[in-house]
Nucleic acid binder design. Structure first.
Lengths: 267, 267
DNA sequence: CGCCGCATTGACGTTCGTCAAGTCTAGTGG
DNA sequence: CCACTAGACTTGACGAACGTCAATGCGGCG
């Protein structure tokens, strides 16, 4: 089992409503042939507004100043650093985490291709969390000044920026619900369903995924200890709901997972 | 004790760097004399950008379409309702809460004068949480279309909107840290310190406050059961850190509370 | 005055955290 | 190619923290 599951999330997906494979390699070979551009990026549907005309598309390209590669384990930005840009993830997988003064830290999210990180930095002009690459990654650097400038002129961009921030607020509301009122099994089930749903939207399998994070990182995100995460995985395996081999997970029964998250009250 | 603590958060504060008392009553008496206006609102420093010139101030007034009074227990908006406006709280106190499909619900925040609610509705054009008044309240209704329009022209407003949303994201990061990694005493201590700090910024006492919410609502926000909240209050009283009489709380030792939130490691 | 909602307190149970031992795997270097 | 190692993961035994259930108290309001 899992023979096919060794491909990374950056590789060609199983089926591809949105093709993920970056055309970026060409940039190195012909630096002047293909410029850094959203208008020909396969991830456009994920991180940029839809329904722009050609003139607007050309202008939008200007929000991306450059690209940046981040090695696995390296940080894109750190708590305390000066904020200057938002980052759109092209390839790879990130975690964001905050720390309390006494050293405890909490993973606040996992981000994948097409998602935006850095929004925390706007309010105080300094970042308040760390963004760490969990696998080799590449991001588009979008200076925030430029975003603000352009979104004054391109209404669709303005609206889009507002939606991205609102979406993050709503996402965090969901995590608060999870952390505040769910038991361990419910948390892990919700986590798996969320991950697989986002991967599926990017053209990957609905039932198979490779975790890019450790049990400890999952635990931190879910407000559990790594042993509890491990035990809960084992329980799901016993119950025949998933197959787990290290970081490879195959979901055998999506409905059971959904039932765990939202227990049906039968009265 | 607590003889002086019976005044509500809407009453004249103990000392007032920013006077909270609304001038609003005059509106009813002279409907044409004083128009709904941010430029003469005492809360301007809390919910609007600073450093505007007169022309900009006049334009900003236009973001407030009207005011709306909400009785205690009534909702400002509900999950599922069409989103159209953001709301700036003039007086009163709100909670926002999300619900899971199976009926559990989670308080995601408590909001007071000068704070903005409704940001959750932007992304899907429908609200995803309920906003409930915990005491009689009044809000400024700010149609979001108008905000977007105006923030294309007034850079300071655009920046301000971005900061408000970013601030909410950072706040929620903090709540996730609390829910994910703190014990009951730490959570309650952090909660009290946060409340009193925000009230102090509005001119109220640094050490005395009246809770506008039940133990159950505090518990929901902190991911605890109401009995645990009650017991933890009792423990703080035993330890001489606070005095508690129903919803009246007097903080006797702020430093102890801070130590509880951030235990000093002495090695 | 009596009712009702909210809060407190106690006894007990469950879930999850802690500590510890042992296993697996990927990566490294001979 | 294989042996070695470090980090990640699993599993078990036990305990602490918090939840549950139930009884009681208190205060505000009609």
């Amino acid at each position: 089992m899992f023979d096919e599951a060794t491909k990374t999330h950056s590789a060609v997906p199983v089926h591809a409503p949105i093709a993920i494979k970056p055309a970026g390699e060409l940039v190195d070979m012909h630096p002047h042939a293909i410029k850094v551009a959203c208008s020909n990026c396969n991830l456009r549907e994920l991180c940029m507004p839809l329904g722009l005309n050609q003139a607007e598309l050309d202008r939008i390209d200007d929000v991306v100043a450059s690209r940046r590669k981040i090695k696995r384990g390296a940080t894109l930005f750190r708590n305390g650093e000066k904020f200057s840009s938002l980052y759109a993830i092209r390839t790879g997988f990130f975690k964001t985490c905050v720390a309390s003064e006494d050293g405890r830290d909490q993973v606040t999210g996992f981000q994948m291709a097409g998602e935006i990180v850095g929004l925390d930095g706007i309010v105080n002009e300094h970042h308040t969390c760390d963004a760490v690459a969990l696998e080799d990654a590449e991001v588009c650097v979008m200076p925030f000044e430029r975003i603000e400038e352009l979104s004054r002129e391109v209404t669709a961009l303005q609206r889009h920026v507002h939606k991205i921030m609102s979406r993050e607020i709503v996402r965090e509301n969901g995590v608060m619900l999870l952390l505040g009122s769910m038991r361990a099994e419910e948390r892990l089930a919700a986590f798996l369903l969320n991950l697989v749903q986002r991967l599926h939207a990017r053209g990957f399998s609905q039932s198979e995924l490779v975790l890019r994070m450790t049990r400890e990182e999952i635990g931190s995100y879910l407000g559990l200890k790594l042993e509890t995460v491990s035990r809960t995985f084992s329980k799901f395996v016993e119950d025949g709901i998933v197959e787990v081999k290290q970081r490879h997970v195959r979901i055998l029964n999506t409905d059971s997972l959904k039932d765990i998250v939202n227990p049906k009250v039968c009265d």
